[in-house]
Design a protein around this nucleic acid. Sequence first.
RNA 1: GGAGAGUUGGCAGAGUGGUAAUGCAGCGGAUUGCUAAUCCGUCAUCGUGAAUAGCGAUGCACAGGUUCGAGUCCUGUACUCUCCGCCA
Length: 426
Amino acid sequence: MLDIKYIIDNQDYAKECLAKKGFASENVDKLISSYLEMNKLKTSSQTLAEEKNRLSNSIKSASAEERPSIIAKSKEIGEELKKEQERLTELQTAFDDMMLRMPNFPSPDCPLGPDESCNQVLRKVGEPKKFDFTPRDHIELMELNDWAEMERIAKVCGSRTYAIKNDLAQLELAIHMMVLDKLRSHGFTVITVPALSKEKPLYGQGYLPFSRDEIYYMPADDLYLSGTAELILNSLRADEILNEKELPILYAGFSPCFRREAGAAGKDTRGLVRVHQFMKTEQFVICKNDTAESDKWHKKLLAISEEVLQDLELPYQVLDICTGDMGAPKFRQYDLEAWVPSQNCYRETHSCSNITDWQARRTNLRYRDNSDGKVKYAHTLNNTGIATPRALVPFIENHQNADGTVNIPEKLRPYLGGKTKIGKAA
RNA sequence: GGAGAGUUGGCAGAGUGGUAAUGCAGCGGAUUGCUAAUCCGUCAUCGUGAAUAGCGAUGCACAGGUUCGAGUCCUGUACUCUCCGCCA
């Protein structure tokens, strides 16, 4: 959520920023006029409330003869006040709804553009591997090594599900352990969080009101399935006023993640790239309300995930996501994409975002700044640590040998009992 | 699933119908020199203000209700704790 007062004081700038995110400037005008109308009514109803309080407080010391007329007058004002408050509630609800739909301002440093074609490649690290044999895709490798039950599990659990087994299952867990250890060494608190969520955190994160179609909902319990630990971590400290000394708060969240993939019909229907349920280790940061500070953390989170891909010895590229391709909450976003040989392209493995105070305003997450004693909204950031099974796709494809075995990079070996390769022929 | 107790500011903790005590922490100021102490103020949200000045409204888990007036009484909901039951 944005600061309405800032918008009113900087209307042209606000419209310009929001237009980059595809938000119409008429809607800014609408928002402002509704805010002004609401405040007018607020002022008049407060005047009534003041009068009513004055009367009520005078009753105790009033004489028995005076009381009936004061009570009558107070009742009369009370009814008028009630009407105004009902109207005010209507206006407030409409206003809040508009505020919840307004995207964050993008950073002035973001590439400009309406869609993903305008994303900029910042750098490529590692060379896409040249094979001296015909490489298999990840599905062939899984079949060859008896690493999965893709067809059987689809019959049991539906499309876009997976069951991986043997060495590949251990590899999946090993990668998470490696990443969790790395995050711990960077000062993160490892935390496992539920996949279940109430509705409120979805508004806090900014999933709602934008993409209800993407979320699993269980009406019998009025609960949702979380699409990422970010959802839970972003609300974990909601409504708190933290002491500045507690900041930055660094969470390494581990959780199952659920996505309906409603808008992705027909895309990546086979294999492990796009599934309804997966496991993710998430990086989440709460820091001070200072763009220089959150930008520093944004770069740090990016560096950590680059280190993850380097430890996994995967070629990748770093994208600076353009204004039109960024989600509503984001101020700046970098994506990491790892090379997938069978598709001859890079595929997203990490998404690293600085949200500034947009989420904190929604969750009412604040801290007291010790330099001036003031209460301020925190900045939040999030980035993938590693998400599986998707990350297994570039992993097994890039590290495959002609016999179908898969080499294990050195950094990962301690997590797999020292194995240097896995697979039937290993 | 059953029974009971509870939820007050950043924290601790009073307050059972008449304007939310007090302590600690933080912040601002004053003062004194002995490793810091003392005193005063401030301490959440919103409206009106140029204002981080005044004035006012709101705020005691949330949503309603009763009342001239609700932290306090009533109803519902959420959550926490204790005991019983069930259980990986």
